[in-house]
Design a protein around this nucleic acid. Sequence first.
DNA 1: AAAACTCCTCTTTTT
DNA 2: GAGGAGTTTT
Length: 694
Amino acid sequence: MQDLNPQQKEALNHTEGPLLVLAGAGSGKTRVIAHKFFHLVKTKKLHPDSLFTVTFTNKAADEMKGRISALLQKDINSCLIGTFHSQCNRILRKEIKVLDYGYDFSIYDDDDQYNLVRHILKEFKIYEALYKGITSRISFLKSSLIGPEEFLSSGDGFGFDEKLAKVYVRYQDELKRCNALDFDDLIMLTVKLFENNPGLLEKYQNMYPYILVDEFQDTNYAQYSLLKLLASAHRKICVVGDDDQSIYKFRGANVSNILNFENDFPGAKLVRLEQNYRSTQNILTVSGAVISRNSERKYKSLWTERGWGEKVYYCWFDIYGEEAKFVAKVIKELYLKGRFNYRDFAIFYRVNLQSKAIEDALREEGLPYRVFGNVSFYQRKEIKNTIAYMRLSLNHGDNVSFRRIINCPPRGIGASTLSKIEHEAKKKSVSLFDAMKVTIRADSLASLVKDKLTEFAKLIEGFSSAKYKSAAEMLKAVFEKSGYAETLDEERAKNVAELISFGEGKDIKDFIDKVSLLTTMDEIKRGDYVSLMTLHSAKGLEFPGVFIIGVEEGVLPHFKALGSTDEIDEERRLFYVGMTRAKDILWITGASKRRLYSKLQNQEPSRFLKDIPRNCCQLVEKVSHHPTIKITHIKVKVDSFRLYATGCRVKHPTWGVGVVRDCFGDGDDLKVIVNFPNIGVKRLAVKFANLQKM
DNA sequence: AAAACTCCTCTTTTT
DNA sequence: GAGGAGTTTT
C-alpha cells in the first residue's frame, strides 16, 4: 500500500460503489487492479473466489493471477480471473440447458465461422467472396445484442440487409443445430440467459459481490450489458481503462462505454492515474501532443518524475529498404555501445507485410529477431484438423468439424457423396454425422463408398467411446488412427507433436475449451532478440527502445481508414499506443517510396507528424552510402513539425508565461491560442506577438 | 488424387 | 508479388 501514489490509493479505497479509473499509459494499471484485489480480500474479507475479475487476453489474466498470488502469498490459479469469453464459457457450461443447448457445445473460432458462412452463402447462391464482410456484420450485430429475428424484423425488407438478415437467421440456426457457439454467442447468450432468468441472475449476483474489469475501453455493448446486469444489484464494480488506447473499435469495442459509465452508474467515482512510470518526459510530451488532437476524449495529461531523457528521433528516407537497413544499423550500434540488449528493442509497424524488409535488414546485420502475430499456432491447418477430430468425437452435431475432416486425410469421400449426406441431413433435420449413418443404410451409394463411410463412422465413434486419461492421449490416438499423421510433412507433424505435448496430463474438455479460447498461445514471450510486431499487438507491452516505421500517409493512418474521422482518430490512437510503449528511446521513421503489394508507391509523411512538438525531437539525416550513423541537426520540412505544439509553454512580454492550446496556419500566418493564467485565453499571430519559447 | 491452372485478395484481429 | 482457394485436367 505504501508504494502506491495518492490517486492509486484513492482507487483502492473506494470500495463501496461504482468506480471508473482512467488509467493513462504506463500509469500502473495492472498494479492497481492486483492491489485492489488484495485489499478487498484482506480488509473487506471477501473470498478470492467471489471477485469476478475480467481481462481481455489470457496473457493478461495469467499475469494478473501471478501478481495477486504473489501479494496474497498463495496460489489463486483456480480463481475467477479470466477473459470475458472464458467467464461466460464457465457460466454457460453449467447453465446453458435453459437455453436449449447441450452442455458439450463446441466453440467456433473465426475460421469455423467463415466456413459456416461460406457454406450458407453457397447454398443461398450469394456471391461467396462476401463471406468476410458478412461474418463481421453478423459479429457486430451479436456484439450489439441484436439477434437474428430482431434484425430481420427491423429491416425494411430490401437491399443487402435483407440478404444479410436471411444469412444471419440461417447461420444462427445452423450453430444451434451443430450445438456450437461462436465467440460472440458466448457473451450474447450469457446476457440472454440472465435477462430471461432473473433467478439465475440473482444467484450469480450473490456469487460475485465485487466486479473488477481491466481494459474497459475495449468492451463491446454486449460485454458492458453483462457487467451492468451482474453489478446492478450491489453496484460494486471497478472498471479500469484508457480511452486513448482504444484500438479495437473495428472489432466492436465501444469507447462510449467509458463515457456512459457515469450515467449508467450514477454517483460513480472517477479517478485519474496520470503519473507515468514508464517513459521519459520527451516521449510523453510528443505522444501527448499527438493524442491531444483527438476530439471526444476524456482529458488526461501524463507526467513523469523521470526527467526529459533523450529526444525523440525522427528520420526520413528515400525508400523503405533504406529505412529498414538504417533501423538495423541503429540497433546494432546501440547494442554495441553496451547499454542495451537485443531484447530491449521493438520495431512496430501498421501492417504485417512491413516486417519483411526489416527482417531482411536484421538478418543482414546478423541481429537476432522474432516476428510476432503472424498466423498463430492454433490457426494452422494441421492443428485445426486434429482438433476437429476431437471436437466431432465429443459433439457429433459439430457439422463444421465434420466437413473439415470427412475427407482429410483423403479417403475417397468426394463432393457428390457429401452432398447426398447434406441432403439427407436437411430432409431429416439431423446432423451430418447421423445423416451419414442413415445414408450408409440406403441404396444410393456404391458399396465402396459405403465401406469408407462406415469406416469413418466407426473411427469417430471409437474415439467417442474410448476412455482416454488425458488430452494428449486422445490427440495421439486421433492423429495416428485417423491416418492423418501419414499425410503430413515433417514440419507440420512437428506442430501436431507440440500440440500433443500441450495436452499432457490435461482433462480433455478443459483442453478443448482452453484451445478454443486461446488462439494465440504462441504469446509474445521475451527472449534476447529484437521483437517485431504490429502496433496492435504492441498494446500492453513496453520496451526501452522503440522504432515505429512507415509513419506515412496511407500506412499510418492506413489508407482504408481515411474515409472517416472516427477511423482516423483510431489510427491516431494506434500511433499513440506505439509511442507510449517506449521507455527511453523512441524512433519514428518513414520513407518516400514504399512497396505495398505489387507496386512501388510514393509516400508522404503522416499527418500525425505535424502535431509533434519540434523541440522534443531530434531530426536525423541519413546520408546515403555513409558507413556510420551520422546524427545532425538539419532543417527538414519545417511544416512537418509544429513549433508551438499543444501543451508547450511560451513567454509573452506583457502577459507572462502561458500554455499553448492550439496552433494553426504557417509562415507569416502562423497563429497560436495561448492560455495565460489569470489573464485568459488569447489568440496571437506569432509574427507580431514576440513570443519566447520556454 | 495429384498436378496444373486460374482467380482473387491484400489492415488491424484481445477471444 | 505471393499465397490461398477453387477449378479443371490428367
